[in-house]
């Protein structure tokens, strides 16, 4: 058994978790609840073992580095953090339906990591610029933030779905969406998750700046990746202020959670592929 196999298994177990949570949501079979939780927990442990094993393997190869330094590894860590945050929310707020909106993101991330072309899974050694503990701190903190924003977006989507249905029909406790937590609770969890993400994104940007300064003597150079992380940070700062000082809530915050998530994805993925592509295209 090697780490790639363990991580590969995780992809399918998260798919299965997704199905379980979706079934729980659609058929409202209460008995499925603990099954979904236990299953997700097992998948999470398998993934943890996979990441740990990959770390060990890198030492056996004489490369010796934390498994957090390329696209594949960061996506895997991203999925891992989404599940961790989701499980904490499930435990703290005693609600399982959120799983139907959070776990799919982890599955999608894992599917992307496993099947997308152009993502290498090999353990390659680190080029000199990447040999820094600040880099590890930077990746870990950024991805905790990104994962929290992903869960917040899932919650935002739930909020919007529930909200449209509530305005359409007055009492619907028997329907599909009746099983969703009350709007007020959703709004509250969304906000708390965003706050959590904002703190980590802030630390992520700061550790990134420290890393850049130790490598190049410039803590901020407005390169597209840095700039997009700042744009994302601004979007969440706007959201916090709009809520806290202007009393925004409900649908507007739900939309901002989704909007912020799009910016996260762009920071993380778009900058690497779209803008880099644009640049090389332009210079041809």
């Amino acid at each position: 058994m090697n780490s790639s196999q363990l991580i590969g298994i995780t992809t399918f177990t998260y798919l299965f978790s997704t199905i379980l949570y979706a079934a729980l949501f659609i058929f409202k079979t209460k008995r499925l609840g603990p099954v979904a939780t236990v299953f997700t927990l097992i998948a999470f442990l398998i993934q943890t073992a996979g990441i740990g094993l990959r770390w060990l393997e890198s030492y056996q190869m004489g490369v010796g580095r934390a498994p957090l330094t390329n696209m594949y590894e960061s996506v895997v860590f991203f999925a891992w953090t989404i599940i961790l945050i989701y499980l904490i929310i499930e435990w703290k707020f005693k609600t399982r339906i959120i799983g139907a909106f959070a776990v799919p993101f982890a599955f999608l991330a894992m599917a992307y990591a496993s099947f997308a072309s152009g993502i290498t899974k090999e353990i390659v050694p680190l080029v000199p610029a990447l040999q820094s503990n600040w880099l590890i701190a930077h990746v870990v903190t950024c991805f905790i933030g990104y994962a929290a924003f992903t869960v917040a977006a899932g919650l935002g989507i739930m909020y919007l779905i529930k909200n449209t249905s509530e305005t359409r029909q007055s009492t619907n406790d028997s329907t599909l969406l009746g099983s969703l937590p009350p709007l007020k609770v959703l709004d509250d969890i969304t906000h708390k998750t965003m706050i959590f993400g904002f703190l980590w994104l802030s630390i992520g940007i700061i550790t990134g700046a420290i890393w850049a300064n130790s490598a190049w003597g410039t803590y901020w150079s407005w390169d597209p990746k840095e700039t997009w992380s700042l744009i994302t940070w601004f979007i969440y700062a706007i959201t916090l202020h709009a809520r806290y000082t202007r009393g925004w809530g409900g649908t507007r915050i739900a939309w901002l959670a989704i909007f912020g998530f799009i910016s996260v994805i762009f920071t993380y993925y778009g900058v690497n592929f779209l803008l880099a592509g644009l640049h090389s295209y332009g210079s041809n």
Partner: peptide
């Protein structure tokens, strides 16, 4: 903040 975020995009493109 809104203006800063939107204009910042220009320089990344």
């Amino acid at each position: 903040l809104f203006f800063l975020s939107t204009t910042s995009i220009i320089g990344t493109i």
